[in-house]
Amino acid sequence: MAVSDSHSGRLARFARAWTGPRRGESARQSVMVIVLGILLILTYVPLIYLAILSLKDNGQIYGRFWSLPNPARWANFVYGAQAIWRPMWNSILTTTISTAGTLVFASLSGYVFARHRFPGKELIYTAILALLMIPPILTLVPAYVLIYNLHLQNTYWALILPWTSGGQVFALLLCRSFFATLPEEFFDAARIDGASELAIFLRIAVPLSVPILVTVAVVRLVTTYNQFMWPLVVISSPARQVVAVALTQFTSDMGITDIGPQMAAYILAAAPLIVLFSLGMKQYVQGITAGGLKA
């Protein structure tokens, strides 16, 4: 889970010690649980609504709004999948490739910036960090024109290249500070043995830095999968569109609004994130916090 549970024991001990002598503590605890419960229910209303709609047909939605799906139309998920499997594939493909690209390039240069000494190092590094100040909205139009001029509109490259590039700054930041913490002795030993720079990077630096690479990967995957504005601008062909945009064009593709399959498609679109978060929630939080604080 997201945050360490190691505190629970000591917190419980502390809470008991702190509140033990007081009367009415259990009443207060109950109030807290009730408040949280109400907030929880309100938070989940849209999700439950989504789940219910995804199993109804239009007749059930228009005719019996308040009834549960009866019969439950599981076929909606088949229709939903038919409509969005291609955009899902596009999303997964471009997201994975650009994340992999970011990891390769950013770990390479992060390693160089952490462990090499060469003329102009700090200057270049500062110039790269300055990019953190550039909001995507500033580069949107010129980047679109660039893609247009390179004749990359409606290709995967239009997504992969800018995403790979843009992810590097944040990744470089994390990688550099991580590589800087590795003991110098490892690298010196390898150099004495005559290993090449690339070999040192691949055999020593990368294996030691798996945790930070996973963190970068999870953050980039989640961020990229949620991208909406850029694909909206550079991709107009439905065959190449990513799922975030394709979901919004669902209605026009199907001709009429069949709400059930549409809702089923929304749920299916969350599947990659469900997998990702169940595996890497902790890394996601670490990455976001670290990136945000250092930026």
Binding site: I134, P142, V169
Partner: peptide
């Protein structure tokens, strides 16, 4: 240090093309 420059070259080329250039172009 040429090997160092070579190793950061991909990063620099990508950032110059897809981040720095659009930023200046926009301004």
């Amino acid at each position: 240090a040429r090997i160092s420059y070579l190793m950061i070259l991909p990063t620099l080329v990508l950032l110059l093309t897809f981040n720095y250039y659009p930023a200046f172009s926009g301004l």
